[in-house]
């Protein structure tokens, strides 16, 4: 098995682009941590009315997850049409299932 010795042979332009990309990832991460902290603080301090807390928590979670998908998992990049299509289809099915199980299970 040939030893891999070409570790530096990456196009410098590409390398620069990768670096810029990585900076964006770091910003994304910082925002995710921030949202997490906000979510925990809201609950820990009980600063918000019960009626509002749950929607706010869910919105924070959805934004975080969107970051995760679009930046960390590169769904914003090209070549991800089919993955996005199937993810959205899955999410639609998921929402229907959760709605069904939450709304029409007890009466």
């Amino acid at each position: 098995m040939a030893e891999n010795t070409n570790s530096n042979e990456v196009n410098p332009y590409q390398k620069h682009k990768n670096k810029l990309e990585m900076q964006k990832q770091l910003i994304t991460f910082a925002l995710m941590i921030l949202f997490t902290i906000i979510a925990f603080v809201i609950v820990a301090t009980g600063m918000m009315q019960k009626m509002f807390v749950i929607p706010v928590l869910l919105i924070l979670a959805v934004i975080q997850v969107a970051f995760q998908f679009y930046y960390f998992m590169h769904m914003k990049e090209k070549g991800h049409d089919m993955p996005s299509l199937m993810m959205y289809a899955g999410i639609m099915a998921a929402l229907l299932i959760i709605a069904g199980l939450v709304v029409i299970t007890w009466w």
């Binding site: 089919m82 993955p83 199937m86 993810m87 289809a89 899955g90 999410i91 099915a93 998921a94 299932i97």
Partner: peptide, 9 residues
Amino acid sequence: WFFLGGETV
């Protein structure tokens, strides 16, 4: 990716 779509469900 498709597998992850299934995992979502």
